[in-house]
């Protein structure tokens, strides 16, 4: 598994250089350098408040950084609007699931196809043949994504009415529908039961093998991190304190002290 997708490969998909984001004088992220390589699963870990989600928000364009650069596929995307970044090929999910609750599951995923379709105002108004073809195509693709995550039978249910675990998968399906090359997942296993977590892990493993896809994820569940990551980056107080293979990170005294140690004291 992990070895076949070595981090060492020089093919960088996403990198950040000196990334800094400040909130009211507090550096949430402090000159972070990050490199994500094509085809790997990279986990970003660290205690609560370490700045992981802020990194995601900067990468996906929701926040503009105070300093530093984000480079995706060789081009700077720093400060770009979120929808532009999605069209370039980065899709994400949220820590506290953000679906379109009063729309059907199918419509949720169809929304993901928005950036890959082009019907304009007039062709939508007059329902031109081209527009109808595109709509049908959008629906087919969305249906495929739904069955990929095993939710096709809920296609016509409202997103707010399906189970929590299914909502997590629906959000991933929506992200996949944007046809990303980098999938950014914010704590995908949070709130899932052990079986759902195992299913998620094998789903992500399958995903990374079958597609030209790279996955960047924030994760708290150490079983998930150790189980599927090729590379782990540890953050604390906005700073990268360590990175390496999962097994090395697991035994890194600095990490144990700063992160694992602290958490075990709490727990």
């Amino acid at each position: 598994m992990g070895l076949s997708r070595a981090h060492a490969a020089n093919d960088t998909v996403l990198s950040t250089k000196g990334l800094t984001k400040v909130f009211g004088g507090l550096k949430a992220v402090d000159s972070l350098d990050l490199e994500v390589h094509r085809g790997e699963i990279l986990s970003l870990i660290g205690p609560n408040g370490a700045g992981k989600t802020t990194v995601f928000n900067v990468v996906t364009g929701i926040y503009t950084p105070e300093a530093g650069e984000v480079i995706f596929d060789g081009r700077p995307i720093t400060g770009m609007k979120p929808h532009r970044i999605v069209s370039l090929g980065i899709a994400r999910t949220f820590q506290n699931i953000r679906l379109f609750p009063d729309m059907t599951c199918l419509e949720n995923v169809m929304a993901g196809q928005h950036v890959r379709s082009r019907a304009g105002f007039l062709s939508s108004l007059f329902r031109t043949p081209g527009m109808r073809r595109e709509e049908a195509q959008i629906e087919r693709t969305a249906m495929e994504r739904l069955s990929q995550v095993g939710l096709e039978r809920f296609a016509h249910d409202l997103a707010k009415n399906i189970a929590y675990g299914s909502q997590r998968m629906l959000e991933i399906a929506r992200a996949l529908a944007t046809e990303p090359r980098l999938l950014v997942l914010d704590e995908p296993s949070s709130g899932l039961n052990p079986k759902e977590t195992r299913d998620l892990m094998s789903f992500l493993e399958g995903l990374i093998q079958n597609d030209d896809l790279t996955i960047l994820l924030i994760e708290h569940d150490m079983n998930v991190v150790m189980g599927i990551s090729d590379w782990v980056v540890v953050m604390d107080d906005g700073v990268k304190i360590a990175e390496g293979r999962p097994e090395d990170i697991y035994h890194d005294p600095l990490v144990i002290e700063a992160y694992l140690g602290r958490e075990s004291e709490e727990g």
Partner: peptide, 16 residues
Amino acid sequence: NCIREDAVAAQATGIN
């Protein structure tokens, strides 16, 4: 409709 339901998610889904 996506914007009405959740504008941040709509942005993150690629909607201008």
